[in-house]
Design a protein around this nucleic acid. Sequence first.
DNA 1: CTGAAAGCGCTTACAG
DNA 2: CTGAAAGCGCTTACAG
Lengths: 339, 339
Amino acid sequence: MSVERSAGPARLIDVAERAGVSMKTVSNVINEYAHVSARTRERVVAAIEEVGYRPNLSARNLARGRAGVIALVVPQLSLPYFASLAGILVRAAEARGWFVLIHQTDGDPDAERAALAGNFPQRVDGMIVSSQMLDPSDVAGMNRSTPLVILSNREFDPGTPHVSIDNRAAGAVAVRHLATGGARRIALIGASDLDSPAPRTKGYLDGLENAGLPLFPELVRPVTRGTGDEGERATEELLSEAAEPPDGIVAITDWVAMGVMRALHRHGLVVPEDVSVIGFDDIPYARSLTPSLTTLAPDRHGIATMALDLLQRQMDQGVAVGQGSLQAGFTLIVRETTR
Amino acid sequence: MSVERSAGPARLIDVAERAGVSMKTVSNVINEYAHVSARTRERVVAAIEEVGYRPNLSARNLARGRAGVIALVVPQLSLPYFASLAGILVRAAEARGWFVLIHQTDGDPDAERAALAGNFPQRVDGMIVSSQMLDPSDVAGMNRSTPLVILSNREFDPGTPHVSIDNRAAGAVAVRHLATGGARRIALIGASDLDSPAPRTKGYLDGLENAGLPLFPELVRPVTRGTGDEGERATEELLSEAAEPPDGIVAITDWVAMGVMRALHRHGLVVPEDVSVIGFDDIPYARSLTPSLTTLAPDRHGIATMALDLLQRQMDQGVAVGQGSLQAGFTLIVRETTR
DNA sequence: CTGAAAGCGCTTACAG
DNA sequence: CTGAAAGCGCTTACAG
């Protein structure tokens, strides 16, 4: 019996000695390389088990010349849409041997741009930037060296590695659902500028056209950050300014929809009898609201997987080559806020 | 001018050559050790700037014999209470040079126990386990070697490193607030077993006694995971079984409170006119509900800071010595669901 | 105050 | 299929 090291966790060499093979062979087994006989493999696996070996990732990453870390940039983890996306991404990344360094910008455009430029406290192998405020122009001029994927509901150049759902189609589906329920004056709380509409706003316009419904500009209201307070304020303004209240409202996020419902309630309008409301995101609490919220649920798993795929592609093929956009699916979830 | 390395980020030795000093001196400057003259320090700082040096954390951690990573174990990141806690913890840990590896258990007790035992895909310097289901007995018998801090609303042995708010006091404050508003039949949705009550349940009992109110056992209902669905179902049962409905309800979490409000609404009971409702957590959406939710807000920053302090203490003084519990503060936030 | 050198635990050409 | 050895980029006694 060989002398045991008195302290510290088992190392690769401890496994090798125990199994009576070289470190290279143990490494081959761990990393699932070919050319290890079944018998040897078994011995090594048994030795790993016996000494309780787990690889030291610092050493591995140092030897491999990678950080083993990717950055996920989000406005705030306290926003449940981003939190649940982060949760899924953390799991998916873990399966591919990456740690996720979560970086929060508080939605500050400068902080988002700084993150885009890769100003992290440490090196990262790639970054996934989930942005609300980011402009295509912020990305266009960048001199990038680190693999990057953008998650955003805005439109980007075809060359930009970008993952989203088909927001234009989703916007149209939202309007169609409201129209099918009988709505004729459909508002949009959370519109972008109508002159250069963002995808969801385009979809809203498509939906009105498809349903043969008129566009009432007074029913189209912007919000900037997608919070409940903003939704409440915007709806309040709409209700006090519009000649007639809407009978259907598309809210740009579920959180905005919550604010919309507060304002409607204050004006004595009942959901869904007087006004139908539909949101985007399917936050975990949507089903627990009174009434529970109809919403468009993005395929978060799809988004996470595609983002990691695009990152991997840039690592394999080089940042300049491995680009392109991917679209994940979405689902209409009908609950109690729509007729 | 010396020959530049063609590829790759700058290393410590590049800085040293540029500044004309040894690696040790650069290291001293970076790690803020003493005994570097002001002139030398300036030269080194300038060189760091010029070559754009950032330390390779894999190498640093390998040399220091630490992982540079602490694990945060939560049920799910999609639950906003945990998400916002994680967000704060990530920031606080970053400031102390730690990465946070987020591990999700889905509230599965087996997964929580496995995490407690330190079964991570990689080594960690410490772990913070935020658990709902964990029992003091799960911890008592553990043979621990990794620093550990538990975040839980249950009671643990004094020796267990544990951070929470004073849940008993908070429970009593919730009841007092309802009683002050005129409630006389106060229910608790989310009670633990009355025979061995958890702190919040104890506080509820304290509160009734302090206010001179009777305990109606039929108004005390358990929930296990603290979701909206559970709160709705428990309230539904209460309303169909109790002789008379309650006029005040303490919900064990804000999410449970949302389910409570759904059930009340279905039974034609108006909040707060007929029934006042108070939750715990102050999730980001509490203020956007209709009506907005009165709640007890834990000091999340305090919890995060204290957890890291307890971890650090165990690292410095040894796992067995550096223990003890800490309590963070809480705040009553009065909104529209209480009179 | 500073320098030369060993060592952290892996991976990976290179030989065999 | 396996082994001996260099190297990844840091830190840290040890000498000076």
